[in-house]
Design a protein around this nucleic acid. Structure first.
Lengths: 146, 146
DNA sequence: GGATCAATGGATATCCATATCCATTGATCG
DNA sequence: CGATCAATGGATATGGATATCCATTGATCC
């Protein structure tokens, strides 16, 4: 459904949204159970996309570039592993344009539904949904460093 | 969204639904633009799942095991490349049960929506949606052999 | 300046979905 | 029976997503 990379990116962003101070790749990796080396790559991607800001050196790390209310799940997914819509006939007939056959029209409609849901769902909303107030599955609410 | 394998399987099943006589892997491959060797493997999977019946030798080939009205897109997708729902916490905390965190609850809800859509959509419905009456993208309606 | 911390970029490894090829099995025809 | 047709199963390749490692760059502290 969504790639492992997108899943990791969402965990990282959720984690960042839950912290005000900069968080190192190491801290995020521990807090989200994502392999640290791979996470570093994903964070680089998020930085390049402008969703996250990075800072080197002591007390450095990563911070969200926008408030969680203005950051959707769709933004994150598109940044690291875009959900491709079906725009033209996958059977490659020329001149068929946007007029998809029933099969692909229906498949794309399903994708459209998901895309819409992801657009509407902000990271802020995730944090504030009732669940004993921890935003990540089965995780003790991390103590925000003072 | 759905794997290449599932896409191929759906094309093949749609093709079969449009033909009464048995169709060889070769014919299906040509008619759906799927690599024949790979299609053969996928068809084997469909046979094993009981969605399709196979017959060797001259005039052999593949036929749908059920009428297209009783065959959903979901059936086909599940048979070859199951869409995995999120059933428990991907962060692997024991005893967390089915109580997903907001992130994974929302992701799984999106999947549930897609699953529902796929369950409701039959192959028969695909064939009968108005589109100049060819079920596959940009494809001249194949002449059903007499 | 030197020491330490932490992101960056590049090279490399691993795994799985995708894909190809072919010898074997089984069915039909004459 | 032999010849032909076509699915089956197994071995093998390939590419992209996933993942690891490390030298380099840049920032902070003393």
């Amino acid at each position: 459904m969504i790639s492992q990379t997108a899943e990791y990116a969402l965990r990282a962003v959720t984690y960042l949204a839950d912290h005000t101070a900069a968080q190192t790749a190491n801290a995020i990796a521990k807090g989200t159970k994502v392999p640290v080396g791979y996470l570093a790559k994903i964070l680089q991607g998020l930085v390049r996309s402008g969703l996250v800001t990075s800072q080197r050196g002591l007390y450095g790390g990563f911070i969200l570039a926008r408030p969680p209310k203005e950051l959707s799940v769709h933004d994150v997914v598109q940044a690291v592993a875009p959900l491709m819509r079906i725009e033209r006939c996958p059977l490659g007939i020329a001149g068929h344009g946007t007029n998809l056959c029933p099969l692909h029209r229906n498949l794309d409609n399903a994708m459209a539904t998901v895309e819409q849901a992801f657009r509407r769902l902000t990271i802020h909303a995730l944090l504030n949904q009732a669940h004993g107030s921890h935003p990540l599955c089965g995780f003790p609410h991390p103590v925000t460093k003072a």
